[in-house]
Design a binder for these strands. Structure first.
Length: 805
RNA sequence: GCUGGUGUGGCGGAAUAGGCAGACGCGCAGGACUUAAAAUCCUGUGGUGGCGACAUCGUGCCGGUUCGACCCCGGCCACCAGCACCA
């Protein structure tokens, strides 16, 4: 009898051996084929590792370990995305320097990850808060600045009233702060911006060349929000000026019955003197400005607005004079801040027109069907045919769009135009714990970049990390640090006191892993050429529109600057589902359903936790935790352990299990590549069930099983490999091969159906002739067939179907 | 509202390519071992009917294509996720 399986002993033993051997360090042997597997580096929070973390880490650890056994030079790195608000808030509350908080949290995280036996290359660990790292974050910022892609702008920002910090649009969710859930209001501030909009088209086009799961691609496209339309000028009656609008439906121009401009539109001030109801308009503008974006959306059901009494516009295609309104359903930040309203064919305009009793003109009809525009706007583009539209009448919508665009451009009253929902990236944060922005403001020279030789610009020690109510960063109080000289003219200048957002450090970290200690560049050309792009990147869906888009933007910029060798950073992107509590709800302290991975490791072992998280269900869907499920996986590993007791000599596979062995190798190999970890494990469970049924397992069979299971449960398989005298380490062994021809049995089970219903199952030779198969099928159905046979179907290896009537 | 996804036993979930629905695991029931319990092992386990080999129904709902549909087509319903006054 073998000794009982002591997971704790086995796991500690092998973790030490792997460390001592530097078993998983990627080599700089650039002649070998490479594989770069990447998981999102964690934010080292004070809570420590969550059971959600091991799911993606184990999945790619499996891929990394398998690739090593297949002969690849594998890079599977880990690091820390350590700047950020929670650390700073904790530091403020407990009066500890954020650097110290970070150090402690990193230490804890690292121990926890270590205990899970991941094959990370710890020689290449990075930390975004390390000056040797953020030197290059700042360097990239300077590149962006020098290329004109970083600029400062007075703008209304999303201001979190609790964090006292400006937020990017992406960080505001349903009108509240993504992190703390507090109210977000608008505030005017001068902020650093990055022109991500310049890359909008490239960010969409690049998606065609990469292997991302569909919903990630779709989310990115939606977020960028490309739309094709036209800008059209409507002359103001009796004036030189025109009101320019953007529309995606220029085909409906003959149906425009009024216009709407945003409350912030500059024409309101420009034509102040002509507006008879200026006071009323200003009151409306005042009211609109007080609304947060959230309220604006909340009140969307009920349209509001005020007529501009005193000015009107002329529809350029038919010369009709139409009124102009202001309403907050038109946003200054999109298009031209003004629209032509076609209530018959736009839901929002329809609502507005109904409320204020404005006329409607139907210009699109549906072929062969009545459309009542008094019931609802008719917006279907696919089936629409133009009516009441002069030279457009009779055309389908798509052709009409093209024809009117040509017309507008020919008559010089408009032009084709592409717009995006994507806005420039608000890059300033008024906080301490972030990368300082390496810019000074000189009275004479304006904004000046620090010379590269002065990087890294380190965070100074401050007395207080408290953010201030006036919206300034804590760095602003450090006058010694703030006051400096201009690198350009030598005159007095002030340092920028805003810091970068957390997204900065994570926008390029995968590049640093390729050459983490480089002092002269963010990474050497050779290292980048060899390792990039990342072959497989897995991360959470919540990072699809933020981190993923930002890092692709930086990468594309660096590609244009010839810093990196490839236009896309990640060749393949997958996403894991969340792990929920036992009750099916999101894990949280308040719900009391949090599972601590340390407890599971202590009680059942890291291998059990890893196996369980891979077995829990489809990788991309969320799954509920189940303590019983954990026990089931532990039982499986116990049964693997006890196979030692029935181990017999024989390097090969026994003849009765040969097919199953080849099938299992094939299935596990394929499933590990396609996120189907659960069925790979199920196949291995079935295999050991067969060993037990038979009562013995050969050394050859056992060795293959251990190798297949090793990526999932590395410690127990390494121990069993060593204890039972297999040579070397299993992590250095070769991934098993299978013979396609041997995955099929000589005889196969074939279902015999009568009229499509299975009646019995026959064992037939796999290469039996059609006639013989059908004869055997009919014999098996003897006595059951009534009527005459009208059809006989035989699908080799699958089914025989006799149809009788 | 738009986009993407998912609906299969008591539960988590399987099912290459239209071909034996329910693999694997959990739970449950019965049995073995034990003074007993835990652990472990064995057997059974979609519903209904029957002692029984068997029959019959069954993959969210309605219909269609097909010798044959969880899978394809048309029309609904529910849930999840993302976006949401973007003209």
């Amino acid at each position: 009898m073998s000794a009982p399986y002591n997971h704790s002993e086995v796991e500690h033993k092998w973790q030490k051996i792997w460390d001592d051997n530097k078993a998983f360090a990627a080599t700089n042997d650039y002649s070998k084929p490479k594989y770069y597997a990447l998981v999102e580096f964690p934010y080292p929070s004070g809570q420590g590792l969550h059971v959600g973390h091991p799911r993606p880490y184990t999945a790619l650890d499996i891929v990394a370990r398998k690739r090593r056994m297949q002969g690849y030079n594998v890079l599977y790195p880990m690091g820390w995305d350590a700047f950020g608000l929670p650390t700073e808030n904790y530091a403020i509350k407990n009066k500890i320097h954020p650097r110290v908080v970070t150090e402690n949290n990193v230490k804890r995280f690292k121990e926890q990850l270590h205990a899970l036996g991941y094959s990370f290359d710890w020689e290449r660990e990075v930390n975004t808060t390390d000056p040797n790292y953020y030197k290059w974050t700042q360097w990239i910022f300077l590149k962006l600045f020098n290329a004109g892609l970083a600029y400062k702008k007075e703008m209304p920002i999303n201001w979190c009233t609790s964090c006292k910090v400006g937020l990017a649009n992406e960080e505001v969710v349903n009108g509240v702060c993504e992190r703390c859930g507090s109210e977000v209001v608008r505030k005017i501030k001068s902020e650093w911006m990055l022109k991500i909009t310049e890359y909008a088209d490239k960010l969409i086009e690049g998606l065609e060349d990469v292997d991302y799961i569909e919903r990630v691609k779709v989310s990115q496209k939606n977020w960028i929000g490309r739309s094709e339309g036209a800008e059209v000028d409507f002359k103001l009656s009796g004036k030189e000026e025109s009101l320019r609008v953007y529309t995606t439906r220029p085909d409906t121009l003959f149906g425009a019955t009024y216009m709407v401009i945003s409350p912030e539109h500059p024409y309101i001030d420009q034509f102040k003197d002509e507006l008879k109801n200026y006071d009323e308009i200003m009151a409306y503008r005042e009211m609109a400005s007080k609304k947060s974006d959230f309220e604006r959306t909340e009140l969307a059901k009920d349209k509001t607005g005020v007529l501009l009494d005193g000015i009107t516009a002329i529809n350029p295609v038919n010369g009709k004079e139409i009124p102009i309104w202001i309403s907050d359903y038109v946003l200054m930040s999109y298009g031209t801040g003004a629209i032509m309203a076609v209530p018959a064919h736009d839901d929002r305009d329809w609502e507005f027109a109904k409320k204020f009793n404005l006329p409607m003109i139907q210009v699109v009809a549906k072929e062969g069907e009545e459309v009542d525009i008094n019931e609802a706007a008719f917006t279907d583009v696919a089936t629409g045919v133009m009516i009441n539209s002069d030279f457009l009448t009779g055309l389908d919508v798509t052709s009409a769009k093209e024809k009117i665009k040509d017309f507008l451009e020919e008559k010089k009253i408009g032009n084709r135009k592409v717009n995006f929902k994507l806005r420039d990236w608000v890059f300033s944060r008024q906080r301490y714990w972030g990368e300082p922005i390496p810019i000074v403001e000189c009275e004479k020279c304006g904004f000046v970049a620090l010379p590269e030789s002065e990087l890294p610009l380190e965070l100074p020690e401050v007395d207080s990390y408290m953010p201030t109510d006036n919206g300034e960063s804590p760095l602003a109080a450090m006058t010694d640090w703030v006051n400096t000289t201009c690198p350009c003219c030598g005159g007095p200048a002030k340092r920028e006191t805003d810091t970068m957002p957390q997204w900065a450090g994570s926008s390029w970290y995968f590049l640093r892993y390729t050459d983490p200690d480089n002092k002269d560049a963010l990474a050497s050309k050779e290292a980048l050429e060899y390792w990039m792009p990342v072959d497989w990147y897995n991360g959470g869906m919540e990072h699809t529109t933020l981190h993923l888009l930002y890092s692709r933007f930086w990468h594309k910029f660096l590609y244009d600057e010839k810093v990196v060798p490839c236009p896309e950073p990640y060749q393949k992107r997958t996403s894991h589902g969340m792990i929920l509590g036992e009750n099916g709800e999101k894990m949280s302290k308040s719900r009391g359903n949090v599972v601590n991975p340390d407890d599971i490791v202590r009680e059942y072992g890291a291998d059990t936790l890893r196996t369980y998280e891979m077995f829990i269900g489809a990788f991309d869907l969320s799954a509920s935790w189940s303590e019983n499920g954990v026990k089931g996986c532990r039982r499986f590993l116990d049964r693997v352990w006890k196979l030692q007791d029935i181990l017999v000599d024989g390097d090969g596979y026994s003849s009765d299990l040969e097919t199953l062995m080849h099938q299992t190798i094939k299935k596990v190999s394929a499933d590990f590549e396609s996120l189907k970890y659960n069925t790979a494990i199920a196949a291995m469970m079935s295999l050991i069930n067969e060993f037990y049924k038979k009562g013995s397992v050969t050394r050859g069979e056992f060795g293959t099983l251990l190798t297949l299971l090793n990526p999932v449960a590395p410690h127990i398989t390494e121990e069993l490999w060593a204890v039972n005298g297999y040579s070397g380490y299993i992590y250095e062994s070769t991934w098993p091969a299978y013979d396609e021809a041997k995955t099929v049995e000589d005889t196969v089970d074939i279902a015999v159906q009568l009229n499509g219903k299975t009646k019995t199952v026959l064992k037939l030779a796999k290469d039996i002739s059609k006639d013989d198969a059908l004869a055997a099928g009919k014999a098996a159905l003897e006595g059951k067939i009534s009527g005459t046979i009208i059809k006989e179907i035989y699908v080799p290896g699958r089914i025989i179907n006799i149809v009788a009537k």
